[in-house]
Amino acid sequence: MNGITINNISKSYPLKKGKQEALKNIELTIPEGELFGLIGPDGAGKTTLFRILTTLLLPDSGTASVNGLDTTKDFMQIRKEVGYMPGRFSLYTDLTVEENLNFFANIFNTSVKENYHLIKEVYKMIEPFKKVRAGKLSGGMKQKLALSCALIHKPKTLFLDEPTTGVDAVSRKEFWELLRSLRAEGITIMVSTPYMDEASLCDRVGLIQQGSMMGVDTPQHLRNAFGKKLLSVKGPDMLQLLRQLQAMDTVEHAYPFGEYHHAVLKDAAFLPELPANIEVKEVEPDIEDCFISLMRTHAG
């Protein structure tokens, strides 16, 4: 059975002049038990898609189902079966860690005791602070509490909208480790992130930009599909080097990439002639390179 099915969903928001298309004809199928990453920058449409799947918004056209239930017709049933963590921290800051958790367990007609095994791993990291008000926790702790609250009713499907945004690197790593272990429990997880480097931690990823799904596949397949030679270049004057690369006929596209510049070569092009003090090596494309390349093809 499929955990999540999305058929040709579109959604736009009215603006003063015209409208803003948040999602354009999205097609997606996520099998049960998959850890799926929705990767794209701010404003790509990630949150809108989450809200449609969690029954908070109706699509303009198209249909979607979660756990085999229609998001429009069976919305009350879906609300019983899914866990949702919105992009903003959405717990009661004036309640303590423990009070928040008990409250969420209660509104889902369950108790913390009943499903403690599910949240044990997350909760034990925040348990020392259980008498502390949620508003006083650090960013990483807040995210862990929010995850506990979203999990407490043993949802079949878990929606996490940018859980790692604004969280420091250590907490991010811990959070992903938690998601991997939840996946082992058989929960379908859909998680969105603006960080390209988190793609490799997902079973499959969808690259989304300006409301369009540019590609859906495993991270490895996406990289294999890059299909062009990619060079990593470094020199003493990086700005000069970048301008030089961008001006070359054999280079399709060149851009800064951390300490290096990346240059995508035109089909079957030879390595360009560069001075000896320039360090050049051929590299495997990163998900970010793939994203850039897909953005360019989609922009036309």
């Binding site: 794209g40 920058p41 851009y255 850039i292 953005m295």
Partner: peptide, 14 residues
């Protein structure tokens, strides 16, 4: 550059 798309981010760094 938190949250901006990869192309804009490159343009920004340039």
């Amino acid at each position: 550059t938190g949250g901006v798309d990869p192309i804009t981010r490159r343009e920004f760094w340039q």
